[in-house]
């Protein structure tokens, strides 16, 4: 979560809102910010830190672990029409990759803006595909893994 916060300027450039959420209370969020996060990141976490008391929201998003009583690591990309575009859920031991999260946001924004589709691992500036009858069987001509 702090790693995502460290890249906040990049999310802002993509006009993307970031929200973090855990089962901790907002009071714990405040003290975590003051005691630790503000020492990891200049200014601390720059986006709202939400409290999911009882894991009710996490349950609806499929990330609440009833045995541990916490929301496990899950991140969701939601588009401006309020449709879930992507989700990634990990057990707690492995942190997420903000590079991949940013890449997916850029790819989905490109897809929505252009109607093109992006091949595996696409980064802005790389070749995209325009689905249609002419492309059937010809993907190899324009893109290779």
């Amino acid at each position: 979560m702090a790693a995502v916060a460290a890249r906040y300027e990049e999310f802002k450039k993509l006009d993307t809102v970031v929200l973090s959420i855990s089962t901790d209370s907002r009071f714990v969020h405040k003290i975590w910010q003051e005691e630790e996060l503000s020492k990891m990141l200049p200014g601390g976490v720059p986006f709202p830190m939400l409290s999911d008391a009882g894991g009710k929201i996490g349950s609806v998003y499929g990330v609440y672990d009833e045995d541990a009583g916490v929301d496990i690591r899950g991140r969701f990309i939601i588009d401006p029409d309020f449709v879930v575009r992507a989700m990634e859920v990990l057990t707690p031991e492995v942190g997420r990759n903000p590079d991949e999260l940013l890449r997916q946001v850029k790819a989905f924004q490109h897809v929505v803006a252009t109607g093109e589709v992006t091949p595996s691992g696409w980064e802005p500036g790389e070749v995209t595909l325009t689905p249609g009858p002419d492309l059937v069987g010809k993907v190899w001509e324009v893109w290779k893994p």
């Binding site: 979560m1 995502v4 999310f11 993509l14 006009d15 993307t16 809102v17 970031v18 929200l19 973090s20 959420i21 855990s22 089962t23 901790d24 714990v28 969020h29 003290i31 975590w32 999911d52 996490g58 998003y61 990330v63 541990a68 916490v70 929301d71 496990i72 690591r73 899950g74 991140r75 969701f76 990309i77 939601i78 588009d79 401006p80 707690p92 997420r96 999260l101 946001v105 989905f108 924004q109």
Partner: peptide, 11 residues
Amino acid sequence: KWIVVCFYPGD
């Protein structure tokens, strides 16, 4: 807006 929601296990 585009929104990213990050759940995490705990402060």
